[in-house]
Design a protein around this nucleic acid. Structure first.
Lengths: 214, 214
DNA sequence: ACCTGAACACCGTTCAAGT
DNA sequence: ACCTGAACACCGTTCAAGT
Protein backbone atom coordinates (compact mmCIF):
# COMPACT_ATOMS: atom_id res chain seq x y z
CA UNK A 1 0.00 0.00 0.00
CA UNK A 2 2.38 2.70 1.15
CA UNK A 3 5.14 3.25 -1.34
CA UNK A 4 8.28 4.41 0.35
CA UNK A 5 10.73 5.52 -2.28
CA UNK A 6 9.43 8.54 -4.04
CA UNK A 7 6.52 9.89 -2.05
CA UNK A 8 7.68 12.92 -0.13
CA UNK A 9 4.23 13.82 1.21
CA UNK A 10 3.26 12.12 4.44
CA UNK A 11 2.88 12.30 8.15
CA UNK A 12 5.51 14.88 8.88
CA UNK A 13 8.96 16.12 8.15
CA UNK A 14 9.49 15.04 4.56
CA UNK A 15 11.04 17.29 1.95
CA UNK A 16 10.22 17.60 -1.74
CA UNK A 17 13.83 17.30 -2.88
CA UNK A 18 12.97 16.18 -6.39
CA UNK A 19 14.69 18.49 -8.82
CA UNK A 20 16.25 20.98 -6.40
CA UNK A 21 19.70 19.57 -5.90
CA UNK A 22 21.66 21.42 -3.28
CA UNK A 23 25.36 22.13 -3.31
CA UNK A 24 27.45 22.19 -0.13
CA UNK A 25 26.48 25.17 1.97
CA UNK A 26 22.87 25.40 0.80
CA UNK A 27 20.39 25.01 3.64
CA UNK A 28 17.74 22.35 3.53
CA UNK A 29 15.65 23.92 6.28
CA UNK A 30 16.11 20.96 8.58
CA UNK A 31 15.32 21.23 12.29
CA UNK A 32 15.56 18.81 15.18
CA UNK A 33 11.78 18.64 15.29
CA UNK A 34 11.63 17.74 11.61
CA UNK A 35 14.12 14.95 12.18
CA UNK A 36 12.11 13.63 15.12
CA UNK A 37 8.88 13.81 13.13
CA UNK A 38 10.49 11.89 10.31
CA UNK A 39 11.66 9.30 12.80
CA UNK A 40 8.13 8.82 14.10
CA UNK A 41 6.76 8.52 10.58
CA UNK A 42 9.50 6.09 9.61
CA UNK A 43 8.78 3.96 12.64
CA UNK A 44 5.08 3.86 11.85
CA UNK A 45 5.60 2.94 8.21
CA UNK A 46 8.70 0.76 8.20
CA UNK A 47 9.09 -0.34 11.78
CA UNK A 48 12.40 -0.19 13.57
CA UNK A 49 14.27 -0.83 10.32
CA UNK A 50 13.13 2.59 9.16
CA UNK A 51 15.08 4.19 11.98
CA UNK A 52 18.47 4.03 10.28
CA UNK A 53 20.22 7.34 9.80
CA UNK A 54 20.51 6.74 6.09
CA UNK A 55 16.88 5.90 5.55
CA UNK A 56 15.86 8.86 7.66
CA UNK A 57 18.08 11.08 5.55
CA UNK A 58 16.59 9.68 2.35
CA UNK A 59 13.13 10.36 3.69
CA UNK A 60 14.13 13.94 4.44
CA UNK A 61 15.88 14.46 1.12
CA UNK A 62 19.26 15.22 2.64
CA UNK A 63 22.65 13.60 2.82
CA UNK A 64 23.03 11.07 5.65
CA UNK A 65 25.49 13.15 7.60
CA UNK A 66 23.22 16.20 7.51
CA UNK A 67 21.31 14.71 10.43
CA UNK A 68 24.32 15.15 12.68
CA UNK A 69 23.75 18.88 12.67
CA UNK A 70 20.54 18.32 14.65
CA UNK A 71 21.13 15.08 16.50
CA UNK A 72 24.25 13.92 18.27
CA UNK A 73 23.99 10.30 17.21
CA UNK A 74 21.50 7.58 16.44
CA UNK A 75 21.41 6.70 20.13
CA UNK A 76 20.56 10.28 20.97
CA UNK A 77 17.74 10.25 18.45
CA UNK A 78 16.28 7.04 19.81
CA UNK A 79 16.54 8.18 23.40
CA UNK A 80 14.61 11.30 22.50
CA UNK A 81 12.03 9.23 20.66
CA UNK A 82 11.49 6.98 23.66
CA UNK A 83 11.15 9.83 26.09
CA UNK A 84 8.81 11.79 23.81
CA UNK A 85 6.54 8.82 23.42
CA UNK A 86 6.05 8.58 27.16
CA UNK A 87 4.53 12.03 26.90
CA UNK A 88 1.39 10.35 25.59
CA UNK A 89 0.72 8.98 29.07
CA UNK A 90 -1.93 11.21 30.63
CA UNK A 91 -1.30 11.32 34.32
CA UNK A 92 -4.35 11.26 36.58
CA UNK A 93 -5.05 14.02 39.03
CA UNK A 94 -2.50 13.22 41.72
CA UNK A 95 -4.64 14.58 44.56
CA UNK A 96 -7.86 12.74 43.76
CA UNK A 97 -8.87 9.21 44.64
CA UNK A 98 -6.88 6.78 46.71
CA UNK A 99 -3.22 6.20 45.94
CA UNK A 100 -3.66 2.62 44.84
CA UNK A 101 -6.20 3.47 42.19
CA UNK A 102 -3.96 6.27 40.99
CA UNK A 103 -1.06 3.92 40.52
CA UNK A 104 -3.24 1.36 38.82
CA UNK A 105 -4.59 3.78 36.24
CA UNK A 106 -1.21 5.36 35.62
CA UNK A 107 0.44 2.00 35.16
CA UNK A 108 -2.33 0.85 32.89
CA UNK A 109 -2.10 3.97 30.76
CA UNK A 110 1.62 3.46 30.39
CA UNK A 111 0.95 -0.11 29.35
CA UNK A 112 -1.54 1.10 26.74
CA UNK A 113 0.88 3.66 25.34
CA UNK A 114 3.57 1.01 25.05
CA UNK A 115 1.17 -1.31 23.24
CA UNK A 116 0.35 1.52 20.86
CA UNK A 117 4.02 1.63 19.87
CA UNK A 118 4.99 -2.02 19.68
CA UNK A 119 8.14 -1.38 17.69
CA UNK A 120 9.52 0.79 20.45
CA UNK A 121 9.08 -1.74 23.22
CA UNK A 122 12.25 -3.71 22.48
CA UNK A 123 14.10 -0.41 22.45
CA UNK A 124 12.75 0.53 25.88
CA UNK A 125 14.08 -2.75 27.15
CA UNK A 126 17.42 -2.60 25.42
CA UNK A 127 17.96 0.82 26.98
CA UNK A 128 16.23 -0.13 30.21
CA UNK A 129 13.52 2.45 29.88
CA UNK A 130 13.84 6.11 29.18
CA UNK A 131 15.92 8.60 31.11
CA UNK A 132 14.67 11.86 29.65
CA UNK A 133 12.68 14.61 31.33
CA UNK A 134 9.32 13.02 30.57
CA UNK A 135 10.32 9.73 32.15
CA UNK A 136 11.66 11.54 35.18
CA UNK A 137 8.43 13.48 35.61
CA UNK A 138 6.38 10.31 35.28
CA UNK A 139 8.47 8.60 37.92
CA UNK A 140 8.09 11.50 40.29
CA UNK A 141 4.33 11.36 39.99
CA UNK A 142 4.38 7.69 40.82
CA UNK A 143 6.55 8.39 43.84
CA UNK A 144 4.11 11.07 44.98
CA UNK A 145 1.26 8.57 44.84
CA UNK A 146 3.26 5.98 46.75
CA UNK A 147 4.04 8.61 49.36
CA UNK A 148 0.33 9.20 49.84
CA UNK A 149 0.13 5.50 50.67
CA UNK A 150 2.85 5.87 53.25
CA UNK A 151 5.55 4.29 51.10
CA UNK A 152 8.70 6.39 50.96
CA UNK A 153 12.45 6.26 50.68
CA UNK A 154 14.10 3.04 49.60
CA UNK A 155 10.80 1.20 49.79
CA UNK A 156 9.27 3.60 47.32
CA UNK A 157 12.24 3.27 44.97
CA UNK A 158 11.94 -0.49 45.08
CA UNK A 159 8.20 -0.44 44.57
CA UNK A 160 8.56 1.90 41.61
CA UNK A 161 11.18 -0.27 40.06
CA UNK A 162 9.02 -3.34 40.47
CA UNK A 163 6.09 -1.60 38.82
CA UNK A 164 8.22 -0.40 35.91
CA UNK A 165 9.70 -3.83 35.32
CA UNK A 166 6.25 -5.33 35.46
CA UNK A 167 4.76 -2.84 33.01
CA UNK A 168 7.53 -2.92 30.42
CA UNK A 169 7.93 -6.64 30.79
CA UNK A 170 4.28 -7.36 30.09
CA UNK A 171 4.26 -4.89 27.25
CA UNK A 172 7.19 -6.74 25.73
CA UNK A 173 5.39 -10.05 25.87
CA UNK A 174 2.13 -8.59 24.68
CA UNK A 175 3.71 -7.01 21.63
CA UNK A 176 5.84 -10.02 20.78
CA UNK A 177 4.92 -13.40 19.50
CA UNK A 178 4.40 -16.27 21.87
CA UNK A 179 7.10 -16.91 24.35
CA UNK A 180 5.88 -19.43 26.83
CA UNK A 181 6.38 -22.95 25.65
CA UNK A 182 3.18 -24.62 24.66
CA UNK A 183 0.57 -23.81 22.06
CA UNK A 184 -1.72 -21.82 24.30
CA UNK A 185 -1.18 -18.25 23.14
CA UNK A 186 -3.09 -15.79 25.25
CA UNK A 187 -5.26 -13.27 23.49
CA UNK A 188 -4.44 -9.59 23.94
CA UNK A 189 -7.55 -9.29 26.10
CA UNK A 190 -6.47 -12.15 28.32
CA UNK A 191 -2.99 -10.72 28.56
CA UNK A 192 -4.31 -7.37 29.64
CA UNK A 193 -6.43 -8.97 32.34
CA UNK A 194 -3.41 -10.92 33.48
CA UNK A 195 -1.39 -7.74 33.55
CA UNK A 196 -3.99 -6.04 35.71
CA UNK A 197 -4.36 -9.01 38.01
CA UNK A 198 -0.66 -9.53 38.60
CA UNK A 199 -0.31 -5.80 39.10
CA UNK A 200 -2.86 -6.22 41.86
CA UNK A 201 -0.78 -8.97 43.43
CA UNK A 202 2.24 -6.71 43.46
CA UNK A 203 0.33 -3.83 44.97
CA UNK A 204 -1.06 -6.14 47.63
CA UNK A 205 2.48 -7.04 48.52
CA UNK A 206 3.73 -3.47 48.40
CA UNK A 207 0.91 -2.25 50.60
CA UNK A 208 1.28 -5.08 53.10
CA UNK A 209 5.03 -4.77 53.64
CA UNK A 210 5.97 -3.89 57.18
CA UNK A 211 7.22 -0.33 57.24
CA UNK A 212 9.27 1.73 59.61
CA UNK A 213 6.71 3.91 61.36
CA UNK A 214 6.95 7.55 60.42
CA UNK B 1 44.34 -7.40 28.34
CA UNK B 2 42.86 -9.80 25.83
CA UNK B 3 44.15 -9.09 22.36
CA UNK B 4 41.62 -10.06 19.79
CA UNK B 5 43.30 -9.96 16.42
CA UNK B 6 46.00 -12.55 16.27
CA UNK B 7 45.55 -14.92 19.16
CA UNK B 8 43.95 -18.10 17.92
CA UNK B 9 44.22 -19.92 21.23
CA UNK B 10 41.33 -19.41 23.58
CA UNK B 11 38.16 -20.74 25.06
CA UNK B 12 36.98 -22.86 22.21
CA UNK B 13 36.47 -23.18 18.51
CA UNK B 14 39.28 -21.05 17.15
CA UNK B 15 41.42 -22.12 14.21
CA UNK B 16 45.13 -21.53 13.60
CA UNK B 17 44.63 -20.24 10.05
CA UNK B 18 47.92 -18.39 9.95
CA UNK B 19 49.86 -19.55 6.89
CA UNK B 20 47.58 -22.29 5.63
CA UNK B 21 45.49 -20.51 3.06
CA UNK B 22 42.70 -22.65 1.68
CA UNK B 23 41.40 -22.63 -1.86
CA UNK B 24 37.73 -23.20 -2.69
CA UNK B 25 36.79 -26.77 -1.93
CA UNK B 26 39.31 -27.32 0.87
CA UNK B 27 37.65 -28.20 4.16
CA UNK B 28 38.31 -26.18 7.25
CA UNK B 29 36.98 -28.82 9.61
CA UNK B 30 34.18 -26.59 10.81
CA UNK B 31 31.23 -28.01 12.71
CA UNK B 32 28.10 -26.50 14.15
CA UNK B 33 29.47 -27.07 17.63
CA UNK B 34 32.66 -25.24 16.75
CA UNK B 35 30.63 -22.29 15.50
CA UNK B 36 28.56 -22.24 18.68
CA UNK B 37 31.67 -22.47 20.86
CA UNK B 38 33.20 -19.57 18.97
CA UNK B 39 30.01 -17.60 19.50
CA UNK B 40 30.17 -18.16 23.25
CA UNK B 41 33.83 -17.16 23.35
CA UNK B 42 33.15 -14.09 21.24
CA UNK B 43 30.32 -13.06 23.51
CA UNK B 44 32.48 -13.43 26.59
CA UNK B 45 35.38 -11.46 25.13
CA UNK B 46 33.74 -8.83 22.96
CA UNK B 47 30.15 -8.72 24.13
CA UNK B 48 27.27 -8.73 21.75
CA UNK B 49 29.33 -6.88 19.15
CA UNK B 50 31.45 -9.98 18.80
CA UNK B 51 28.45 -11.92 17.57
CA UNK B 52 28.58 -10.68 14.00
CA UNK B 53 28.91 -13.32 11.33
CA UNK B 54 32.02 -11.68 9.95
CA UNK B 55 33.80 -11.42 13.28
CA UNK B 56 32.88 -14.98 14.09
CA UNK B 57 34.29 -16.08 10.76
CA UNK B 58 37.50 -14.13 11.38
CA UNK B 59 37.80 -15.79 14.76
CA UNK B 60 37.40 -19.19 13.13
CA UNK B 61 39.78 -18.42 10.28
CA UNK B 62 37.22 -18.94 7.54
CA UNK B 63 35.39 -16.82 5.02
CA UNK B 64 32.22 -15.16 6.35
CA UNK B 65 29.88 -17.20 4.22
CA UNK B 66 31.43 -20.48 5.37
CA UNK B 67 29.29 -20.22 8.51
CA UNK B 68 26.15 -20.71 6.47
CA UNK B 69 27.09 -24.35 5.92
CA UNK B 70 26.49 -24.94 9.64
CA UNK B 71 23.99 -22.32 10.65
CA UNK B 72 20.94 -21.13 8.78
CA UNK B 73 21.32 -17.47 9.66
CA UNK B 74 22.51 -15.16 12.38
CA UNK B 75 19.08 -15.37 13.99
CA UNK B 76 19.32 -19.14 14.03
CA UNK B 77 22.71 -18.94 15.71
CA UNK B 78 21.48 -16.56 18.37
CA UNK B 79 18.35 -18.59 19.06
CA UNK B 80 20.51 -21.64 19.60
CA UNK B 81 22.82 -19.67 21.87
CA UNK B 82 19.92 -18.48 24.01
CA UNK B 83 18.41 -21.92 24.35
CA UNK B 84 21.75 -23.56 25.11
CA UNK B 85 22.44 -21.08 27.86
CA UNK B 86 19.23 -22.00 29.64
CA UNK B 87 20.72 -25.46 29.94
CA UNK B 88 22.81 -24.09 32.81
CA UNK B 89 19.71 -23.90 34.97
CA UNK B 90 19.76 -26.93 37.25
CA UNK B 91 16.20 -27.97 37.91
CA UNK B 92 15.39 -29.12 41.42
CA UNK B 93 13.98 -32.55 42.09
CA UNK B 94 10.39 -32.07 40.94
CA UNK B 95 8.96 -34.55 43.43
CA UNK B 96 10.59 -33.20 46.57
CA UNK B 97 9.54 -30.29 48.75
CA UNK B 98 6.44 -28.19 48.36
CA UNK B 99 5.57 -26.76 44.96
CA UNK B 100 6.07 -23.17 45.99
CA UNK B 101 9.62 -23.69 47.14
CA UNK B 102 10.32 -25.59 43.93
CA UNK B 103 9.15 -22.69 41.84
CA UNK B 104 11.07 -20.22 43.95
CA UNK B 105 14.38 -22.02 43.60
CA UNK B 106 13.90 -22.70 39.92
CA UNK B 107 13.02 -19.10 39.22
CA UNK B 108 15.95 -17.90 41.26
CA UNK B 109 18.37 -20.20 39.46
CA UNK B 110 17.12 -18.92 36.14
CA UNK B 111 17.66 -15.38 37.39
CA UNK B 112 21.21 -16.26 38.40
CA UNK B 113 22.00 -17.82 35.04
CA UNK B 114 20.69 -14.75 33.26
CA UNK B 115 22.84 -12.51 35.46
CA UNK B 116 25.84 -14.67 34.58
CA UNK B 117 25.28 -13.79 30.92
CA UNK B 118 24.39 -10.12 31.01
CA UNK B 119 25.05 -9.57 27.32
CA UNK B 120 22.43 -12.14 26.43
CA UNK B 121 19.64 -10.60 28.47
CA UNK B 122 18.68 -7.95 25.91
CA UNK B 123 18.59 -10.71 23.32
CA UNK B 124 16.23 -12.80 25.43
CA UNK B 125 13.95 -9.81 25.59
CA UNK B 126 14.19 -8.85 21.96
CA UNK B 127 13.20 -12.40 21.05
CA UNK B 128 10.82 -12.76 23.98
CA UNK B 129 12.66 -15.60 25.56
CA UNK B 130 13.87 -18.77 24.02
CA UNK B 131 11.77 -21.27 22.13
CA UNK B 132 14.19 -24.15 21.82
CA UNK B 133 13.98 -27.59 23.40
CA UNK B 134 15.71 -26.52 26.61
CA UNK B 135 13.26 -23.68 27.17
CA UNK B 136 10.35 -25.98 26.49
CA UNK B 137 11.61 -28.55 28.99
CA UNK B 138 12.12 -25.87 31.60
CA UNK B 139 8.60 -24.59 31.09
CA UNK B 140 7.16 -28.06 31.43
CA UNK B 141 8.90 -28.55 34.75
CA UNK B 142 7.43 -25.30 35.98
CA UNK B 143 3.98 -26.40 34.87
CA UNK B 144 4.44 -29.70 36.68
CA UNK B 145 5.21 -27.84 39.89
CA UNK B 146 2.23 -25.56 39.48
CA UNK B 147 0.05 -28.61 38.92
CA UNK B 148 1.21 -30.00 42.25
CA UNK B 149 -0.14 -26.80 43.74
CA UNK B 150 -3.48 -27.36 42.06
CA UNK B 151 -2.90 -24.76 39.35
CA UNK B 152 -3.61 -26.11 35.90
CA UNK B 153 -4.87 -25.21 32.45
CA UNK B 154 -5.16 -21.55 31.51
CA UNK B 155 -4.38 -20.50 35.05
CA UNK B 156 -1.10 -22.35 34.92
CA UNK B 157 -0.23 -20.83 31.56
CA UNK B 158 -0.91 -17.38 32.91
CA UNK B 159 1.04 -17.99 36.08
CA UNK B 160 4.00 -19.30 34.10
CA UNK B 161 3.95 -16.31 31.84
CA UNK B 162 3.85 -13.95 34.78
CA UNK B 163 6.82 -15.67 36.37
CA UNK B 164 8.82 -15.59 33.14
CA UNK B 165 8.11 -11.92 32.57
CA UNK B 166 9.09 -11.18 36.15
CA UNK B 167 12.34 -13.13 35.96
CA UNK B 168 13.56 -11.82 32.62
CA UNK B 169 12.36 -8.33 33.43
CA UNK B 170 14.29 -8.16 36.68
CA UNK B 171 17.33 -9.67 35.04
CA UNK B 172 17.19 -6.95 32.41
CA UNK B 173 17.17 -4.24 35.01
CA UNK B 174 19.81 -5.90 37.13
CA UNK B 175 22.22 -6.21 34.23
CA UNK B 176 21.55 -2.75 32.86
CA UNK B 177 22.46 0.62 34.20
CA UNK B 178 20.02 2.55 36.28
CA UNK B 179 16.59 3.01 34.86
CA UNK B 180 14.36 4.44 37.52
CA UNK B 181 14.56 8.18 37.66
CA UNK B 182 16.39 9.41 40.67
CA UNK B 183 19.91 8.85 41.86
CA UNK B 184 19.16 5.92 44.14
CA UNK B 185 20.67 3.01 42.27
CA UNK B 186 20.01 -0.24 44.03
CA UNK B 187 22.89 -2.54 44.70
CA UNK B 188 22.85 -5.98 43.09
CA UNK B 189 22.20 -7.45 46.52
CA UNK B 190 19.23 -5.17 47.09
CA UNK B 191 17.92 -5.93 43.65
CA UNK B 192 18.10 -9.65 44.25
CA UNK B 193 16.21 -9.28 47.51
CA UNK B 194 13.61 -7.18 45.73
CA UNK B 195 13.35 -9.82 43.04
CA UNK B 196 12.75 -12.53 45.63
CA UNK B 197 10.28 -10.42 47.56
CA UNK B 198 8.19 -9.40 44.58
CA UNK B 199 8.29 -13.01 43.40
CA UNK B 200 6.74 -13.86 46.74
CA UNK B 201 3.99 -11.31 46.17
CA UNK B 202 3.20 -12.87 42.83
CA UNK B 203 3.14 -16.38 44.26
CA UNK B 204 0.85 -15.20 47.03
CA UNK B 205 -1.51 -13.95 44.38
CA UNK B 206 -1.22 -17.04 42.24
CA UNK B 207 -1.87 -19.34 45.18
CA UNK B 208 -4.79 -17.30 46.48
CA UNK B 209 -6.69 -17.04 43.20
CA UNK B 210 -10.10 -18.69 43.31
CA UNK B 211 -9.95 -21.85 41.23
CA UNK B 212 -12.51 -24.08 39.62
CA UNK B 213 -12.65 -27.15 41.86
CA UNK B 214 -11.27 -30.25 40.25
C1' DA C 1 25.77 27.07 11.48
C1' DC C 2 24.22 23.95 8.16
C1' DC C 3 24.89 21.20 4.47
C1' DT C 4 27.38 18.04 0.62
C1' DG C 5 30.87 14.65 -1.19
C1' DA C 6 33.71 11.27 -0.21
C1' DA C 7 35.50 8.08 2.54
C1' DC C 8 36.26 4.55 6.43
C1' DA C 9 35.25 0.51 8.56
C1' DC C 10 31.90 -2.17 8.98
C1' DC C 11 27.23 -5.34 8.35
C1' DG C 12 24.13 -10.11 6.65
C1' DT C 13 23.45 -12.79 2.84
C1' DT C 14 23.59 -14.83 -1.92
C1' DC C 15 25.57 -16.73 -6.02
C1' DA C 16 28.78 -19.08 -8.76
C1' DA C 17 32.36 -21.61 -8.65
C1' DG C 18 35.94 -25.26 -7.01
C1' DT C 19 37.08 -30.05 -4.72
C1' DA D 1 28.86 -31.35 1.42
C1' DC D 2 31.88 -27.76 2.55
C1' DC D 3 34.41 -24.01 1.46
C1' DT D 4 36.29 -19.50 -1.21
C1' DG D 5 35.89 -15.16 -4.03
C1' DA D 6 33.25 -11.72 -5.31
C1' DA D 7 29.48 -9.14 -5.06
C1' DC D 8 25.01 -6.77 -3.45
C1' DA D 9 22.75 -3.75 -0.68
C1' DC D 10 23.21 -1.94 3.22
C1' DC D 11 25.08 0.33 8.07
C1' DG D 12 26.94 4.73 11.61
C1' DT D 13 30.12 8.19 11.66
C1' DT D 14 33.95 11.46 10.47
C1' DC D 15 36.50 14.77 7.81
C1' DA D 16 37.23 18.35 4.64
C1' DA D 17 35.22 21.38 2.17
C1' DG D 18 31.63 25.03 0.53
C1' DT D 19 28.25 29.14 1.64
Amino acid sequence: MASERERPSGTGGERPSSAERRTPGQRAGLTRDAVMAAARAALAQDGVDGLSMRRLARRLGVAPNALYSHVASRDDLIDALLDDTLGEVRSPDPSRGDWRRGIETMTRRTYDVLLAHPDLVPLYIARRGARGPVAVALGEQMLAMLARGGIEGDEATEALRTLIVHTIGFAAFATGDTLPPGPSALTPRALERLFARSLGWLLDGIAAEPRARS
